[in-house]
Write a protein that binds this DNA or RNA. Structure first.
Length: 111
DNA sequence: CGGTTGACGTCTT
DNA sequence: CAAGACGCCAACC
């Protein structure tokens, strides 16, 4: 595959990765970007999520920032809703209100 | 074609 | 410890 096509597939890969996130696990934007070979492209990953196709089974709530926090409220309704969803899936939340990335960070060990 | 924005990340005040 | 500033780079107007 040509490097140029990687960019073209950037969003597709982001969606694909997000769709592959196992239940009870979370991934950071920077992590996804790094997996795509663009550690500096964390913002674009977020942008991809912002433009996430509605109606799809894309578990965008499992994608959070490096601190283990979620979006301010750009998602389904409010960050509390996303947090609740994650808790239902088994995500461990620290007293800080952040997800415990140390325990719940998902990695591509499958490939 | 150029300025603004942004679901980020990290450093500095 | 919380908030702000800067950097990065593509998408959008």
């Amino acid at each position: 595959m040509d490097p140029a096509e990687i960019k073209n597939d950037f969003y597709a890969r982001v969606y694909d990765i997000v769709a592959l996130i196992p239940r009870g696990k979370v991934v950071t934007y920077g992590q996804i970007a790094a997996l795509l070979g663009a550690p500096q492209a964390a913002r674009r990953v977020g942008y991809a999520m912002y433009n996430a196709p509605a109606g799809s089974n894309l578990p965008c709530h499992r994608v959070i920032n490096a601190r283990g926090e979620m979006a301010p409220g750009t998602i389904f309704g409010s960050p509390a809703a996303q947090r609740k969803l994650l808790e239902q899936e088994g995500i461990i939340f620290k007293p800080d209100g952040c997800a415990d990335l140390v325990k719940c960070r998902w990695m591509f060990d499958s490939e």
